[in-house]
Write a protein that binds this DNA or RNA. Structure first.
Length: 167
RNA sequence: UCAGCCGGCCGGGCGGCCGCUCCGCCAGUUGCUGAAAGGCAGGCGGGGAGGAAAGUCCGGGCUCCAUGGAGAAACGGUGCCGGAUAACGUCCGGCGGGGGCAACCCCAGGGAAAGUGCCACAGAAAGCAAACCGCCUCGCCCUCGGGCGCGGUAAGGGUGAAAGGGUGCGGUAAGAGCGCACCGCCGGAGCGGCAACGCAACGGGCACGGCAAACCCCACCGGGAGCAAAACCGAAUAGGGGUGACGCGGCAUCGGCGCAAGCCGAUGUCGGGCGUUCUUCACGCCGUCACCCGGGUAGGUUGCUUGAGGCGUGCGGCAACGCACGUCCCAGAUGAAUGACCGCCGCGCGGGUGCCUUCGGGCACACGCCAUACAGAACCCGGCUUACAGGCCGGCUGACGUU
């Protein structure tokens, strides 16, 4: 039996408001063959929807897939998205901070600030079944934190407002 | 007080709020999963980056590969002596040389009398003694200024990083260690030191230039690759092996269609087929499905943190360090945690305003500086090197002042 270790980060029950919204939005009874992990997570009849919360992108191939999708550019960051269309409602996120941004300390700082900003915005703005990649830029280091959060939220809006791409 | 030298240490603190990761305990009848063990979720408590974590330059541990032992050659490294150490190219203590008034700092510091080679430019000459301009005796010529020649010299000039000791006196045709004095140099009995080396009676007129980061010689050291090592578990897909079934071909019978040739279906039975110019043997190749087996990829687990370990005390040692006792457990991530945001506070720096001033500056006030440098563990240790805002402590040296 496959023991799906990639989904160790399971939904945090304490993020209730967002969790409820996500649950309501992703209630799709006609969802066909659900993944094994989904089965693992949906035993409770009380929240029978496939609320799988957030997971982390870990494979280089996944990042390359997302790179092919839509993107939205802000001064402080770039947001990329891909609809997996695999029936799972899991939202996966990842970060890309290249060597261009700075040395290891600066790259760490950029990633941590982006992670914090994503934690604030993603529960509301992210859509089920999508993969997101946030790309750090040199500017991320200088922009105030509130601006990063605003940028990220607006990037989420614009990336989903446009007509759904065929990919 | 000023200037300087050396050594050690720190590298923001407090609080709020939201998180991450590892460990322990709780609950284990209840949430999810599982046959169970357990896992996930949950609650409580605790640990969680650096002095360089960096560069990856040395030395080890550990793992795999290679290897009969030992050695040699080749290649690479190290290079005053003694000690420390698991080991080192590191450290400590000395020695020698150089720099600084001093504290102290710096040194790629074996062998040039084993051999080969090189010493640019300049210069007459660059390693073996020679002589460009000169100086001098003698001979010859001559318009008696001088020129030429045989010799003697190396004091003076000039070149150079370096030209075969230096200074002075004597000496001489002019000169020269030719002689003498002092300094230097060479050899050196003996003495001190474990040694590097130091001191040095006495002897020698002085010969023996530099470069070994040129080849080389001598002594010592070195098998290779690295945690992406290595071990274990192990999908999907493709391919390999095995077993079975079916497909495939011939023949017979029956049934259906058709005038017929024949076609289709069912059952039974016998056979594999093709290629290697023919035959036999032999060899090679060949369809579909199911199950099994082994290798192995993705992925996962282990390796993975208790170690030449930290701290304290005592003892030995000038020291590096060692020994004994006590005590502590101190990051283990893996698209990679150790944090995001906010508030308060310090020192410093910057310009501004006001006051004081011995004109060096000092004090006060508010403001600004991401409330700040360099920088993020990736198997683990010992070093080296490089980067670094600012600050603390101790010791020492030289000036000036006071008593």
């Amino acid at each position: 039996m496959d023991s799906a270790p990639a989904w160790r980060r399971l939904p945090d029950a304490r993020f209730s408001p967002a969790a409820v919204r996500a649950a309501a939005r992703s209630f799709r009874p006609e969802d066909g063959p659900v993944s094994v992990v989904t089965m693992l997570l949906t035993g409770d009849t009380e929240q029978r929807s496939a609320n799988e919360g957030l997971a982390t992108l870990k494979k280089r191939a996944d990042f390359l897939q997302v790179q092919k999708g839509r993107k939205s550019v802000r001064n402080s960051l770039i947001l990329q998205v891909r609809d997996r269309r695999d029936g799972s409602s899991l939202v996966r996120t990842g970060f890309t901070v290249s060597r261009k941004v700075g040395n290891a300390v600066e790259r760490n700082r950029v990633r941590r600030r982006l992670r914090a900003a994503l934690g604030e915005t993603a529960p509301v703005a992210a859509r089920d079944g999508h993969d997101y990649v946030v790309v750090g830029r040199r500017m991320t280091l200088q922009t105030p934190y509130r601006t990063i959060v605003d940028d990220l939220a607006s990037a989420f809006r614009s990336i989903h407002r446009a007509p759904a791409s065929d990919r």
